[in-house]
Amino acid sequence: MPVPQQLGRGDRMGRGPYEKSGIIEDTGLPPGKEVRERFDIFFPTEEVEDENGKWVTKPTASELDLEVKLWYLPFGTMNADPFLWDEFKQTVRISTTGK
């Protein structure tokens, strides 16, 4: 979203329209341009002792339910009129065999 400049000066963000003048940055979606985001999400793991008595890191699950939600927050917070623009859901799996 656009980060409006307070009263057209300095490094402070303005809040109400009466003190907004200028834009410090804009993290919104520009027209006609593709915007890409990448998320790396680690599976939950735990430390377990293997058959040789060695402590190793093992995933606690082989499936992960993923949800990506594109929210528009008109007032900058989920507490005030959030709008769910689009969403994506998928369950991904890792193999349980192999070394």
Partner: peptide, 30 residues
């Protein structure tokens, strides 16, 4: 998802790639 390896440690992870194109005639949001 795949078994990513941090040195000797297996750290499985999921990678999510999102592509968005704004087809409006102005930035969203404004």
């Amino acid at each position: 998802a795949f078994h990513w390896r941090d040195g000797a440690t297996i750290k499985p992870k999921a990678v999510v790639k999102v592509e968005m194109v704004n087809h409006a005639g102005h930035s969203i949001p404004d």
